[in-house]
């Protein structure tokens, strides 16, 4: 799976599917929840919406879901404008909110059936559809339970089922994985991947970045109400990133080899039984691995310590709007001016 953060691509021509957002702005009084967002999400792909709390992700999704009108900017959802033709957008959009509301006294089956009716399905079709979705989200055992008795994770699945009732071509999922157990997360991932494979546009916001890495094809980073520019993303991508190295054999072999390879000690830290080295690029990482193997270090693990999304997210978070690539921590290689204290390796 490619995980190149994708922010700005040429807007799709009007009438095309997917989501196209340009120059979006929305404030609540003095609070500029969304100040400038431009991105697109394409059909057949899962697009991750990544950003810290309060970055404007939920406000953006509310505008896409036809609930909020933007102050400025344009939105196209499957070729329709949510402001001028909300009806058309609602027909093709499934929205799973971050607030887990459910009709407390209704059974799971009746809640889904009612949603189907609200989408204009006939009574028979709605009943059928409820059964399909109950098994799709694995709530069979709870189909007759009142929704108020559901756990958070189960409500999450009910909410997903409700979003899928009318077989939408665009899916807006706001924190879909929160509260799900690992098995349900895997199931959700498979389900969402499958939905995208069928040609649907899926926009997912989540804080669980590791999970988005496995789920999303593209990513949109938002920060303080704005989508992050391509340049800043490129800078973040070129910043140093930690690599996790584990080796077996002589305990000091790895440390010795690292110091022989002129890795500054400040760029090395030990976490548990593994060593984490801050490395500026993939080329350097490859050279480092070759060097270690050459020196007879029996490497068992050599991998980025964090995913791409997480690294970018953290880097943007750490250095908001500052143009300094790489952050303040030492990285390898850091020039060859530093004094080597080879004595301590022994």
């Amino acid at each position: 799976m490619t995980q190149k953060p994708l922010v700005t691509r040429p807007p799709a021509p009007p009438g095309a599917g997917g989501i196209v957002v340009t120059g979006l702005r929305r404030s609540f009084g003095d609070v500029h929840a969304v100040s400038d967002m431009t991105f697109s999400a394409r059909p057949g792909r899962v697009t991750a919406l990544i950003g810290p709390n309060g970055a404007g992700k939920t406000t953006l999704l509310l505008m896409l879901a036809t609930l909020l009108a933007p102050d400025a900017g344009t939105i196209s959802v499957a070729g329709h404008d949510p402001v001028t033709s909300p009806e058309a957008v609602r027909r093709v959009t499934g929205w799973m909110p971050d607030v887990l509301g459910s009709w407390n006294t209704l059974s799971v089956r009746r809640a889904i059936r009612t949603t189907a009716l609200l989408y204009g399905m006939s009574a028979e079709r709605a009943t059928e559809r409820a059964e399909e979705l109950i098994s799709l989200v694995s709530l069979d055992a709870l189909a007759n339970a009142q929704t108020r008795s559901l756990s958070r994770g189960q409500k999450q699945r009910l909410s997903l089922a409700r979003a899928l009732v009318h077989d939408p071509s665009v899916l807006l999922l706001d924190e879909p994985a929160s509260g799900l157990d690992p098995a349900a997360r895997v199931a959700l991932r498979e389900l969402v991947r499958g939905l995208a494979r069928d040609g649907r546009t899926v926009l997912v916001s989540s804080h669980v970045l590791a999970e988005l890495e496995e789920l999303a094809d593209d990513a949109v980073f938002v920060e303080a109400g704005s989508t992050v520019s391509a340049e800043r993303l490129a800078r973040a991508a070129s910043a140093a990133r930690p690599w996790r190295i584990r080796a077996i054999g002589a305990p000091d072999a790895l440390a010795l080899a690292l110091s022989e390879l002129q890795v500054p000690r400040s760029a090395v830290s030990t976490i548990g039984d593994s060593v984490v080295v801050s490395v500026t690029s993939e080329d350097v990482a490859a050279d480092l691995l070759a060097g270690l193997v050459q020196r007879g270090v029996r490497v068992t693990t050599f991998a980025p310590a964090v995913g791409d999304f997480e690294r970018t997210f953290l880097d943007l978070d750490r250095e908001p709007h500052a143009g300094r690539p790489g952050g303040g921590t030492a990285a390898y290689p850091a020039g060859h001016d530093g004094p080597r204290e080879s004595g301590d390796a022994r």
């Binding site: 036809t66 609930l67 609200l118």
Partner: peptide, 16 residues
């Protein structure tokens, strides 16, 4: 009350 319970918006995104 529906708004506070989070069920108003999920009804409003449907076709009613």
């Amino acid at each position: 009350g529906d708004r506070e319970a989070g069920t108003l918006a999920t009804t409003q995104v449907t076709l009613v």
